[in-house]
């Protein structure tokens, strides 16, 4: 009986989107700070080790927001087994934001009588609803907003934080391209346009393959959605923030998942 319960639990956990894929997902540019207009190349991949490519990601949702707010698509995109790569022309003075995701995605889970495992779907909410068989039981929908991003600056840094008001976003604090290893950096996050208070920020330095521990340091966001991060070493870092919100019974969406990650470079003092 106990064994059965564990199996059932595992299956249901697997059915949810983010928990199923525990890999870190990241965008890594060749440069974070430029003094002359140039093309910057990106790796886009999911992996357990930072920053070692492992699984190429879809570039369909990749957008580049230039300092003037214009949106560009990646240049020379190639999806390979272990990494996806693309280029971006960095030619305007100021800060570019390179991002993927940030828009709601929906998942369904339902049991068709007589079938061993629950069925699952992914797509727009209306389409998912249309595909649920009339005799299905245990119908559940979940929503996920997942944003991955990084920042590149040509010349003087400018404010180019995302402010869509959807999901988790980095909205202020230290500029992502002026970070120094011996100076704490304050970052401010929003969840759906309001301070993301109480969420956990996880900060992991590059090079996990060459140490015994992940080296992740966690911070809890204060009432303003802010945390002051202390860097252990100069180098590249991945910062991740996530939230799972169980919705009240009777809500059409049973659970909402939010995740955010940003790749940053921290300079030697």
């Amino acid at each position: 009986m106990k064994k059965q319960m564990i199996v059932a639990l595992t299956v249901s956990v697997m059915g949810w989107p983010l928990v199923a894929d525990a890999h870190k997902r990241w965008l890594l540019p060749t440069d974070f700070s430029l003094s002359d207009a140039e093309q910057v190349s990106f790796d886009f991949t999911a992996s357990n080790n930072l920053f070692y490519v492992d699984k190429g990601m879809s570039m369909d949702g990749v957008e580049i927001i230039d300092p003037a707010g214009e949106v560009h698509k990646p240049i020379n995109p190639v999806k390979r087994k272990r990494r996806s790569v693309f280029d971006v022309d960095i030619e305007k003075e100021g800060t570019y934001r390179v991002m993927s995701g940030g828009k709601p995605m929906y998942f369904s889970s339902f049991q068709v009588p007589g079938e061993e495992k629950p069925s699952r779907g992914r797509g727009a909410l209306d389409e998912l609803k249309a595909k649920i068989p009339a005799n299905a039981t245990d119908v559940k929908f979940s929503e996920s907003i997942s944003l991955l991003e990084t920042y590149i600056t040509l010349g003087a840094p400018s404010d180019n934080f995302g402010k869509s008001g959807q999901g988790i976003e980095l909205v202020g604090g230290a500029h992502p391209n002026t970070l120094y290893a011996d100076e704490p950096s304050r970052f401010v996050f929003n969840l759906n346009g309001k301070p993301a208070k109480g969420l956990t920020v996880e900060v992991t330095p590059d090079g996990t393959r060459y140490r015994d521990e992940e080296g992740t340091v966690s911070y809890t966001l204060d009432d303003k959605g802010a945390a002051e991060v202390n860097w252990s070493v100069p180098g590249r870092y991945l910062i991740e923030v996530g939230a799972e919100i169980e919705m009240p019974k009777g809500n059409e969406i049973a659970k909402r998942y939010y995740s955010y990650s940003v790749t940053l470079e921290v300079l030697q003092p």
């Binding site: 700070s33 430029l34 003094s35 002359d36 391209n177 002026t178 300079l267």
Partner: peptide
Amino acid sequence: QEKWWRDLRSWWRRGGSQ
């Protein structure tokens, strides 16, 4: 060359870039 000004990384990020 302008491309490598950024390698004076302290100067560049502390204000050279501005």
